[in-house]
Nucleic acid binder design. Structure first.
Lengths: 416, 416
DNA sequence: CGCTATTTGTTCAGTGGTTGAATTAAATGA
DNA sequence: TCATTTAATTCAACCACTGAACAAATAGCG
């Protein structure tokens, strides 16, 4: 019913390379190049690009077209002498992924097709803190059902679903701890098992993956943005999470709990955090901390309004807000400097609530990086806002489903 | 002449999967299993393990034996009914790797065979700070020449060399900065090009790889110790460096400069560090800091004696030393907690000068981890000393050469 | 001592998938 | 109109894996 993505690096075959694996690997290779290309490549271009023969590419493409993963581009894309090339692109009418997100103050569902287009998107604003996990998941299942119906009416086939939650998810898909949601040891797969839209299985594709929201948002950014293959994506929501993308793959750590950047100590002797530590980043750059430093703690803003309100006040050059953002940016910068010293990353993406505040956060972040990163002189670090907005996690979730098909098309093609 | 290892994950084929690749992949698969097995496995056991047919395994093994990478174990290892199995093990008389290290107060060269045995090891103690890079490398080349002669007299064939330096190495093999050695922009490959023992090329294998010493030490620990595939290896020398091993592969970052843990800020407003930052880990847990906190700053100890002297005094329960180690351990613990929050690692290896001090450093390190790591309750972190001693970097360097052959035997077999 | 059971390793015809060259297809341009 | 050029397909050859049958080597048992 569910399955948590493994920790292994994705590109490693690792197992036996049997005879049929060869075709499977080449299907993945060719499909991957088609997905990565900026314009629809011809078979000949793919052959030159991959090193395979044109004959092999033709055979492989035939399989991909028959399996509804690839279509030929109708218009002749290129001029010149010789027979015109027929461009190949990812099919928009084949498999699609269902992405779900449960967060503190909203539920979201979306459908993304193989080409990465968002074909359906619904957000349902509701404060979920007073709602039981079972009820929350029931409402999410309802959204998922509508998304599924919409997708099918567009001729799409859902190939799987992924769901993001703001907390720690274990190997069994269980939410061990979601502090801001008040969840503890919630067996999501079991609770969702009763809801039909999420239980239908397609061969070879895990029907539901439960994952941390910051991880999925980072994946969304990887595929949607023009991001390079290695970056740190920081999601500034009520809590602060991060997704670490290394060489085009999400790094999940040994238990899948990487990216807990919000509890990295900024000042080891600072004020106590409810996590048990002291001086954690969240105490300096979390949403509550920024609001409180800006003198807006009393204002009873809904969580989703806080970010836009901050942006408005910052644009109006409100002194306390500017100061609060500078302080938060410095704390983020100290933490990011640690990460860059450790991992030698060259790109940091500010996502979630931080994205619209990038203009004010970037200068202090860059200042700390330049002061504290040993290699900063040779290796400039780019700090930029996320290109996906608040939908990053659900789009990333849906994207992770179709990406898995692109990475391993053999399973999908063998389904019939 | 030189080549810096790429940043890509090693197991990814990534390129074209041509027909011959299939054999190449299976050669690597089988050889890898033979290398990883605790006792020499039979062909039948390998077939069951890998999922290949016994026929295929036999054919693959035949190639590996013909290429002097694998030998049959003479004694019948196992009893029971049926035809006795013939164990397969890595050949001890085939290719070997040359490992070199240049450090502040010594030069080292060693030869490691395919099975991981150290077949030659020389350490030449000399303070290299007053010596010019060219002279230092000339002396190292001399050591390398002797190592090569010794290896050849044992019937080994050197398949390549790797060299560790305590500093930042760029893609061109150039040492951009080695603060404790006083080097800046030293073109190692060019300077070594004049020394015959290091210039002979073997097809398909880069003759010399220059890498950071902490990275190579981590690799040495990965292959020598019973370490799992994912851990952080901290080298406590004059400076503090770290090697990050993720899923069995060293993570080098976008420019190859990962692991600069010594300049992660512990107290952002602490005393200034010569790197330009403030409150870096090195100021609290570097060798000088520990000696100074222990009241031994004036004692004019040679660098290599400092570590043993500290151990002696700690064993004698010298109060100032115990206090200094507790302080250093706390600082390391704060930093390690950040790393574990970020990467969700479950193992931390204390290497270099820290290894013999593990007994005193571990308690404060663990205490900080437990206080500050969000997932510590479910996910215990092991802190243990490195199994390799001061030779870790040079052994790791030589090991990286033979490991590359094991990971990609096709190139070696095609050399003839 | 001889027979059977059992497990290992090899042989060999068969097959799937890639290869490379030849061929066909479809356009441009003189 | 025809040579030129580039794209895509066809087809015999080949390489490496497969699966089953077979040979080898030992333990156990009567």
């Amino acid at each position: 019913m569910w399955q948590c993505q493994g920790v292994k690096s994705p590109a490693a075959p690792a197992g036996a390379v049997r005879q049929g694996s060869l075709r499977e690997l080449n299907l993945a290779l060719v499909l991957g190049r088609i997905a990565a290309a900026r314009r629809p490549p011809s078979r000949a271009a793919l052959a030159a690009d991959t090193g395979l023969t044109r004959a092999t590419v033709s055979a492989v493409v035939e399989d991909l077209v028959a399996g509804r993963l690839v279509t030929e581009a109708d218009p002749t894309p290129r001029a010149g002498a010789g027979r015109p090339a027929r461009g190949l692109m990812l099919a928009g009418d084949g498999p699609a992924g269902l992405g779900l997100e449960i967060n503190v103050d909203y539920l979201a569902a979306c459908v993304v097709d193989l080409a990465g287009q968002v074909r359906h998107h619904t957000v349902h604003r509701v404060d979920l803190r007073p709602v039981s996990p079972a009820d929350a998941l029931a409402r999410l299942a309802e959204l998922a059902g509508r998304a599924r119906a919409d997708a099918e009416s567009q001729g799409l086939t859902l190939a799987g679903a992924a769901m993001g939650v703001p907390g720690l998810v274990d190997d069994a898909g269980q939410v061990r701890l979601a502090p801001n949601l008040g969840w503890r040891d919630v067996p999501v797969p079991q609770l969702l098992a009763e809801h039909p839209p999420l239980t239908e299985t397609v061969d070879g594709v895990p029907p539901l993956v439960v994952d941390n929201e910051a991880n999925l948002a980072a994946l969304g950014e990887l595929h949607a943005g023009a991001a390079p293959g290695t970056f740190l994506h920081i999601s500034g929501e009520v809590g602060i999470g991060a997704g670490i993308v290394l060489n085009g793959a999400l790094f999940r750590g040994t238990r899948g709990w990487s990216g807990e950047i919000g509890h990295i100590p900024v000042r080891p002797d600072g004020p106590p955090c409810r996590c048990g530590g002291r001086g954690c980043l969240e105490l300096y750059a979390g949403q509550e901390a920024i609001l409180s430093a800006a003198g807006l703690a009393g204002a009873d803003l809904p969580a989703d309004r806080a970010s836009t309100r901050l942006t408005q006040l910052a644009e109006a050059e409100h002194p306390a807000v500017l100061h609060a953002l500078a302080e938060a940016g410095t704390a983020i910068g100290v933490t990011v400097a640690s990460v860059v010293n450790l991992l030698d990353l060259d790109t940091v993406v500010l996502g979630g609530g931080y994205a619209p505040l990038t203009g004010w956060l970037r200068p202090p972040v860059l200042a700390e990086i330049e002061r504290r990163v040993l290699t900063a002189a040779w290796s400039p670090v780019t700090v930029r806002p996320a290109t996906l907005g608040a939908t990053a996690a659900s789009v990333g979730a849906a994207g992770s489903v179709v990406r898995r098909i692109i990475a391993r098309p053999g399973g999908w093609l063998a389904r019939l």
